[in-house]
């Protein structure tokens, strides 16, 4: 029997009653449990948050703090995969993940995720401060319990509210250095928070049958394609000024303002294009285009923020 089938029952549920005698997982399967692509975003945004602090930090401690935040994010991804293994097995996009594919037993994933969660929080607390560690623990709790176990299966606003979990890392990065909060990292939080719905809904439009089969109340499943497109356009309109806000509040300089305005306009343009194209291949392409560009949008904005923090001569405050 192949690895892809022997842990699945015919209705798609994951059989965890009789785990294999010997684990079938490779190291790569455990790595995949950490959702490495999400971890990349977390590492990057946490680093930007850390640089925002403008306070000296030992590079070793800085590196170790980012590592702890990344492992904490990976642990929450692992626990998300453990809890959602059954619905993952029903969706084309997620059926090959380590648990539904049978490579990792659900119990192994749960133990792995819990160990990393506790370890990352303790490590961050010991090397930086316990405020940052508590915030990391809250983020893991929010993603696993509030989003995965509750919101995702219950409300159409699941990724709107749940998006906060993905938006916390810059704040944790800043807190790891200073032990406090500031408005600048709150704006970084808002950018990711407002960016999440149009980003996810663009993909959900294409994968709505998958979500419907799994019983996940995503917006396209519950409210239909037209309402989803309207919401994507509205969020993109709000995203533009929010994306520009670090410059508008005077935290970063004109380079960031130009980039965020330009990319904000591109996002609105693509959202409008998606709003107009509602059927067939053009609609599918418009969804994928917005999804791809939204990733680029967030990456470019945070690169611009990082550059302005590292090369402070560009910032408004130096012209004042």
């Amino acid at each position: 029997m192949s690895l892809a089938t022997d842990s699945l029952i015919s209705d798609g549920s994951v059989a965890d009653a009789t785990p294999p005698l010997v684990s079938k997982a490779t190291a790569k399967d455990y790595y995949e449990l950490l959702k490495p692509r999400v971890m990349q975003l977390v590492i990057f945004t946490a680093l930007v948050g850390m640089m925002t602090a403008h306070e000296p930090i030992n590079p070793v401690i800085g590196f170790a703090s980012i590592l702890a935040i990344a492992i904490g994010a990976g642990a929450s991804g692992c626990l998300n995969m453990w809890y959602d293994a059954t619905i993952d097995s029903l969706m084309e996009r997620t059926a090959k993940r380590p648990i539904p594919s049978g490579a990792v037993a659900p119990g192994e994933a749960l133990a792995f995720g819990m160990t990393l969660s506790v370890g990352s929080v303790l490590f961050l607390g010991l090397i930086s401060n316990w405020y940052a560690a508590a915030f990391l623990a809250f983020t893991i709790f929010f993603y696993v319990v509030v989003y995965t176990m509750w919101l995702k299966h219950w409300t159409v606003q699941n990724i709107v509210i749940g998006g906060a979990a993905g938006a916390f890392p810059p704040m944790i990065g800043y807190m790891a250095v200073t032990g406090s909060m500031n408005i600048e990292t709150l704006l970084q939080f808002l950018i990711i928070f407002i960016w999440t719905p149009p980003h996810f809904w663009a993909l959900a439009l294409v994968k709505s049958k998958d979500y419907a089969r799994a019983g996940v109340p995503m917006l396209p499943v519950v409210a239909g394609g037209i309402e989803t497109r309207r919401q994507i356009l509205l969020y993109s309109l709000v995203l533009m000024p929010v994306g520009m806000s670090p410059s508008l509040f005077g935290y970063v300089g004109p380079v960031y303002l130009v980039i965020s305005t330009l990319f904000g306009a591109v996002m609105i343009g693509l959202a409008y294009d998606l709003f107009r194209k509602r059927e067939g291949e053009p609609a599918r392409k418009a969804s994928y285009r917005l999804f791809g560009v939204s990733i680029l949008y967030l990456f470019v904005l945070f690169v611009a923020l990082l550059v302005e923090e590292v090369v402070p001569v560009l910032a408004w405050r130096n012209f004042g």
Binding site: V22, S23, K24, A25, T26, A27, K28, Y30
Partner: peptide, 13 residues
């Protein structure tokens, strides 16, 4: 195959 997987896990650990 199982031995190879076990070895990969041990090496990574």
């Amino acid at each position: 195959e199982e031995l190879a997987r076990q070895k990969s896990r041990s090496r990574a650990l």
